[in-house]
């Protein structure tokens, strides 16, 4: 069988995780790299053993052997670049969020439906060991019907400087769209329910001048009465803090993983730090599921769920702005 030829767009922070996954999967091959910054594209291409590179997507879409695109560019570029991929008739794995507005999310969904190509948004936490283990535990019926999710992903580092696109709500969509969607999607997937409303609070903790909320408390209500409490933080001190905590309560039991649930501890001269256990590669599992879907399998991350995550993220930003609960319709 021919390998699926992939072009990676955006040679930034997260690109290595995707190229590593491609390298590890015998069904895929990396054809080339695109980055608006030609020097970055060239450096990445060299590092990958001299693959093709270009400063724009249109050029890359004409390279021979290209079947699919992985898009890891800033969030506001997902819609225009993604639509170009659909027009070219290629499959797409797009970094989260699918888009920064609900209208753009629907536009992308419709375009890939019309082109009969696979569109998957990279909600990577669904493919991490913990994300899958919680889902399997709930699906097994062990805790009955889940009625509460509490999920916290807490960090103490803020993005590097004032020029970072992530700190610009126009480019990132705001923190609810940027990182909040990870938790909003994961909790909703675990619960398996239909979100009906969101109430959220946000803080600008690290600096009053921030344009995005570095701490988010996002509470989602579901049609069956379930609740999800999701905390996303880049605001915590000390800056080295990196914790994840989860609690799922059901009608017949609870699932918990504390902040030290998958780590050993080092008591060192510089303080106490965690050593996370070795585990599966979420990006490889995510790539594998996308390739499966291209091969005809049901997608592990359906487009409708990615659209819903955008709807939830938009509702979070609206709830913070108004101080009121916001009804959700995906």
């Amino acid at each position: 069988m021919d390998r699926i030829g992939i072009v990676l767009v955006g040679a930034g922070f997260i690109a290595d995780a995707h190229s590593g996954a491609i390298d590890a999967d015998p069904r895929a091959t990396l054809i080339g790299i695109v980055d608006a910054d030609p020097a970055r594209a060239a450096a990445f291409a060299r590092k990958q053993g001299g693959i093709r590179y270009a400063p724009d997507l249109d050029t890359a879409l004409r390279w021979p052997g290209v079947d699919a695109v992985i898009l890891c560019t800033p969030n506001d570029t997902h819609a225009p670049l993604g639509l170009a991929v659909a027009t070219a008739g290629k499959h797409l794995l797009v970094e989260k969020p699918l888009a920064t507005t609900l209208a753009d999310a629907h536009r992308l969904a419709d375009a890939f439906e019309a082109a009969d190509r696979v569109l998957v948004a990279a909600h990577t936490h669904r493919f991490y060991d913990y994300g899958r283990a919680v889902k399997q535990t709930i699906s097994s019926g062990a805790i009955g019907r889940p009625v509460l999710v509490r999920l916290a992903i807490l960090g103490g580092w803020i993005w590097p400087d004032w020029s970072a696109w992530v700190g610009d709500p126009e480019r990132s969509g705001g923190h609810a769209l940027h990182n909040g969607v990870h938790l909003l999607d994961l909790a909703t997937w675990w619960l398996g329910g239909e979100p009906t409303g969101v109430y959220a609070r946000g803080r600008k903790q690290t600096a009053a001048e921030l344009r995005i909320y570095d701490y988010l408390e996002m509470v989602v209500s579901y049609a069956d009465g379930a609740t999800a409490v999701c905390e996303m933080s880049r605001a915590h001190r000390p800056g080295s803090l990196a914790q994840r905590e989860l609690l799922v309560a059901g009608t017949a039991g609870i699932v918990e993983q504390g902040w030290d649930g998958e780590s050993s501890l080092v008591f060192g001269e510089a303080g106490t730090t965690t050593v996370p256990a070795a585990g599966g590669n979420g990006f490889a599992a995510q790539l594998g599921a996308w390739l499966d879907a291209i091969g005809g399998a049901a997608p592990a991350m359906p487009v409708a769920d990615a659209v819903r995550a955008v709807a939830l993220g938009v509702a979070v930003e609206e709830s913070i702005a108004t101080g009121k609960p916001v009804a959700v319709t995906a």
Binding site: V147, L148, Y199, V219, S221, G225, T227, V229, A249, P325
Partner: peptide, 8 residues
């Protein structure tokens, strides 16, 4: 929000 038996 939630229910009176498990409230947030």
């Amino acid at each position: 929000t939630g229910t009176p038996d498990l409230v947030t």
